[in-house]
Write a protein that binds this DNA or RNA. Structure first.
Length: 665
RNA sequence: AGCGGGGUGGGGCAGCCAGGAGUGCCCGUCGGGCUCAUAACCCGAAGGUCAGUAGUUCAAAUCUACUCCCCGCUACCA
C-alpha cells in the first residue's frame, strides 16, 4: 500500500476475483467480493518517511487513487475498505482476545536493537549492517540481499540505524508470540487434504511446513500498526492484522456471520508471493480463533506477469500501472488479454505483440466480427427485427443446442476457477457462430434467411451473457445493440422473441490495434518529461539490443550528458556462429581493442551469413550492461540500420579501417 | 546461494497431480473457398525423438532418480 496499482496486482488478485464474483452474481448466487488495502507495515512507514508525509497521509493518497482506477476497470467490489479503520482495530483485538483465551499467545523477553538517538526500537528494515554469513555490507535487518539468508536484526555485525546512522544498542523488551508450532499438524493436514488449493499453493505450502512451523513474534515496537491491547508501545506485525481485514470488511457489509457458516465458500485470489500467508498463517489464525470459523474453500494463486521484454518498463520491476494501461487501451482489452493469458502455471512474459495479437485475432476477429456480421445481416435482410423461424434444420438445432452446452461448460470451468479455459470456451462459441454463418450462407440462401439470422442473433445474445464477467462494458454494448435488458446467466438458452426490435445503430464492437497504437513506436513521446535516473540510459538501449529495432524507436531529444554516457567503439569481428535454437541471433566475438575479445549476441542472423561477417569492422556499444541471451552473455551491442518494414538490416561500419577500440564521438 | 517454477511442431500455451495411440487451443506458414462482416470469416495441409539420460510399467509428455538449459522471488509488489 505505498504505490499505485499496476497490471501485476490486477492479474494476481483483482481481476480473477472480479470475473469469478461477477459470474456468481450473474448466476444468481449469494456472493460478495470483499477487498481492501493493507495499510500497515514497515514498507509503508519507510515510504512515507521518504516522501516526507505521515503514513496516514500516504495511504490516504494511494487509497483514493486505487479506488478511482479500480472503478475505471469496472471492478465490482461489494466493499473496498482499508485496515486503518477503527472497525479493523476492533476486529483484530477480538481475534487477539480469542487467541489468548484459547492459549495460543505467550510472552517472552527478547533483546532488540534500540537507537538511543531516535529513541526507538529498530525492527526489520530499520536497521542495516554487515551480514554475519557472507560479510556483505548493507544487509537489512530481516534479510541479506547478497546471500539471501533471512536474518534477525541482532545477527548483524556493525549495525546502524537507517534513519540517523548511529550504532544502536541491545535492549530487553517483552514480545508477544503466536504459538504456531502447536498448529503444525492441523495445518499440514488441512493443506494435504484440501482440494481447493491451486497446485502451486499446495506445493509451496507443503515445502514450507516441512521446514517446521515456528512460533511467530507478533510484536513490533512501532507506532504504525494495530496496537496490541496489553502491550503498550507495540503493534501487531502486519501479517497478523492484514488477513483479518477480510473479516472486518465482511462485517462492515453486515455479513460477519458468513465466517461461521458452514455453507460459506471462502475463495481467495492471490499472487504467489502471498501463498504462505493464505495457506498457512491465516488458516492457522482462523483455527486458533475457534468458534467454528471457516477455512478457505479455494485458494487461487497466480504466478507473475513479467515485463522484461516491454519497452515501457523503465527498469526491472517497473510495471505498467493501471492508470497508464487505461490511457492506452479500453479497459476491456486489458481484462480480456489478462484473463486469456493468466499465469496459472508459470510466469508469463508480457509482450505488446502478444497483446495485440490476442485482441485482434480473438476478441476482434472472432467475437467482434461475429456480432457485426449478425447485426448487419439482420439489418440488411430482416429490417433489424428478430425473425420468426419457420422450420429449423438439424444444423440450426445443433447450434442452438451448442449455446446451452457452451454455457454449461463455461459455468463449470468458472466454478472450478479455470478462467483462462472458460474464456477460450466463450471464444469457441463465437467461432462456431462464424462457422455456422459461413456454411449456411444466408446471403445466398434466401428461403432460409429467417432461420439463419434467428440462430445467429441468439448466439450473439448468448455471447453477451457469457462475456459479462470478463468484459462487462463490451457485453453491455452488445446487449444495447440487441436492445436487451441485462440478462441472468440462466436465461442464456431462452430464445429472442420474434418481432423484437434490435437497435439499428451499431458500430464495430472492438477496433483493431494498429502497430502505431502500441507504445513501442511512441517511445519518444512516452518518455518525454520523464526524468530518468542516472544509469537508466543503459536500460533503455538494452531492449533494442535483442530486438534489432534500432531503426524503429523514435528518438526523443536527449541531453548531451546522456549521450556521453554511451561508449561506442570500433570492433573487428573475429568469429561468427549461429546460436542454436535462435533464428535471428549470431554469437559474435569482436575485438574492441581490449585484452580479450568481447562476446556479443546480435540479431542479424536473418540477414548475413556467418562467413560474411568475419573480419568486418562494426560499431559496438561497449558499456551496455551485459545480458544473457539464449544462454550466452552478450557484452555489448552491435549497431545496425534497419528499413521501416524490417526486411533489410545492415550493420554500421567505418568507411576505412580503424584500429579496434577506436572511440566514436 | 536459498526457495519456487518452467523446457510440448516456427512462436505462445493447455495436457502432467489421478499413466493408456502426440491429443487440444491461439498465432504463424502453405493451398483452397466465401463476399453477409472490421482485408474479416470458413475449409484443408505441412510441421513435434513432449530438454537429455537411466529406471518403474503391458503401457510414460504424464511416475521415480540424475543431468543440462531457462525464468521468477529472496528491494517495493500480485
Amino acid at each position: 500500500m505505498n504505490n499505485e496499482l499496476h497490471l501485476g496486482h490486477f492479474t494476481g488478485c483483482i481481476l480473477p476475483g472480479d470475473v469469478y464474483s461477477r459470474f456468481l452474481k450473474l448466476k444468481g448466487e449469494d456472493a460478495i467480493y470483499v477487498c481492501g488495502t493493507d495499510e500497515y507495515g514497515t514498507p509503508t512507514e519507510v515510504a512515507a518517511q521518504k516522501e516526507g508525509v505521515t503514513p496516514q497521509e500516504l495511504t490516504d493518497k494511494y487509497y483514493a487513487k486505487q479506488n478511482e482506477v479500480l472503478k475505471k476497470f469496472n471492478v465490482q467490489f461489494d466493499i473496498y475498505s482499508r485496515t486503518t479503520t477503527l472497525d479493523h482495530t476492533k476486529q483484530v483485538h477480538e481475534f487477539y482476545n480469542a487467541w489468548k483465551h484459547n492459549n495460543f499467545i505467550y510472552r517472552k523477553e527478547i533483546e532488540q536493537l534500540y537507537c538511543k538517538h531516535c529513541d526507538r526500537f529498530l525492527p526489520d528494515r530499520y536497521v542495516e549492517g554487515i551480514c554475519p554469513l557472507c560479510g556483505a555490507e548493507g544487509a537489512r535487518g530481516d534479510q541479506c540481499d547478497t546471500c539471501g539468508k533471512p536474518l534477525d536484526p541482532t545477527d548483524l555485525k556493525n549495525p546502524y540505524c537507517i534513519t540517523c546512522k548511529n550504532t544502536p544498542e541491545l535492549r530487553k523488551t517483552e514480545h508477544v508470540f503466536f504459538e504456531l508450532s502447536k498448529l503444525e499438524e492441523q495445518v499440514l493436514e488441512w493443506v494435504e487434504n484440501h482440494e481447493g488449493l491451486f497446485q502451486n499453493s499446495k506445493n509451496f505450502a507443503l515445502g514450507f511446513i516441512k521446514q517446521g512451523l515456528n512460533d511467530k513474534d507478533m510484536s513490533r515496537d512501532l507506532k504504525w500498526g494495530v496496537p496490541i491491547p496489553d502491550a503498550p508501545g507495540q503493534v501487531f506485525y502486519v501479517w497478523f492484522d492484514a488477513p483479518i481485514g477480510y473479516v472486518t470488511f465482511t462485517k462492515q457489509l453486515g455479513k460477519l456471520n458468513w465466517w461461521q457458516d458452514k455453507n460459506t465458500r471462502l475463495v481467495h485470489f492471490i499472487g504467489k508471493d502471498n501463498i504462505p500467508f493464505h495457506t498457512i498463517y491465516f488458516p492457522a489464525m482462523l483455527i486458533a480463533r475457534g468458534d467454528d470459523y471457516i477455512l478457505p474453500y479455494k485458494v487461487a494463486s497466480y504466478e507473475y506477469l513479467t515485463f522484461k521484454g516491454s519497452k515501457l518498463s523503465k527498469s526491472k520491476g517497473h510495471m505498467i500501472t493501471l492508470r497508464e494501461a487505461a490511457e492506452l487501451f479500453p479497459v476491456d482489452y486489458w481484462r480480456y488479454f489478462i484473463i486469456s493469458s493468466l499465469p496459472e502455471r508459470a510466469d508469463t512474459d508480457f509482450t505488446w505483440e502478444g497483446f495485440q495479437e490476442r485482441i485482434n485475432n480473438e476478441l476482434n476477429n472472432d467475437v467482434g466480427n461475429l456480432v457485426q456480421r449478425a447485426l448487419s445481416l439482420a439489418k440488411k435482410y430482416v429490417n433489424s427485427t428478430v425473425p420468426k423461424p419457420v422450420t429449423l434444420t438439424d444444423n440450426d438445432k445443433i447450434v442452438l443446442k451448442q449455446i446451452e452446452t457452451s454455457a454449461q461448460q463455461v459455468a463449470e470451468l468458472i466454478y472450478d476457477i479455470k478462467l483462462k479455459e472458460a474464456l477460450q470456451e466463450v471464444a469457441k462459441l463465437a467461432r462456431i457462430g462464424n462457422q455456422y454463418i459461413q456454411i449456411e450462407e444466408p446471403w445466398k440462401n434466401q428461403e432460409r434467411q429467417k432461420e439463419i439470422i434467428f440462430v445467429s442473433l441468439n448466439v450473439v445474445k448468448a455471447l453477451s451473457i457469457l462475456l459479462e464477467p470478463f468484459i462487462p462494458e463490451t457485453a453491455k454494448k452488445i446487449q444495447d445493440y440487441l436492445n436487451l435488458k441485462p440478462q441472468m446467466y440462466d436465461n442464456i438458452a431462452d430464445h429472442l422473441e420474434p418481432g423484437h426490435e434490435l437497435n439499428k445503430e451499431f458500430e464495430p464492437l472492438i477496433k483493431k490495434i494498429e502497430d502505431k497504437d502500441l507504445p513501442i513506436k511512441n517511445e519518444g513521446q512516452q518518455q518525454q518529461g520523464v526524468k530518468e535516473k542516472p544509469g537508466d540510459a543503459n536500460a533503455k538501449v538494452k531492449s533494442a539490443a535483442v530486438s534489432t529495432e534500432v531503426g524503429k524507436a523514435a528518438v526523443a531529444a536527449v541531453e548531451y550528458d546522456d549521450f556521453a554516457k554511451l561508449k561506442f567503439k570500433v570492433g573487428t569481428i573475429k568469429s561468427a556462429e549461429r546460436i542454436e535454437g535462435a533464428d535471428k541471433l549470431f554469437k559474435l566475438t569482436v575485438d574492441v581493442g581490449e585484452q580479450n575479445p568481447r562476446t556479443l549476441a546480435a540479431g542479424i542472423a536473418e540477414f548475413y551469413k556467418p562467413e560474411e561477417l568475419v573480419g568486418k569492422q562494426v560499431i559496438v556499444l561497449a558499456n551496455l550492461k551485459p545480458r544473457t541471451i539464449r544462454g550466452i552473455e552478450s557484452q555489448g551491442m552491435l549497431l545496425a540500420s534497419e528499413t521501416e518494414d524490417g526486411k533489410r538490416v545492415k550493420f554500421v561500419t567505418v568507411h576505412e579501417e580503424m584500429p579496434p577500440g577506436s572511440k566514436i564521438r
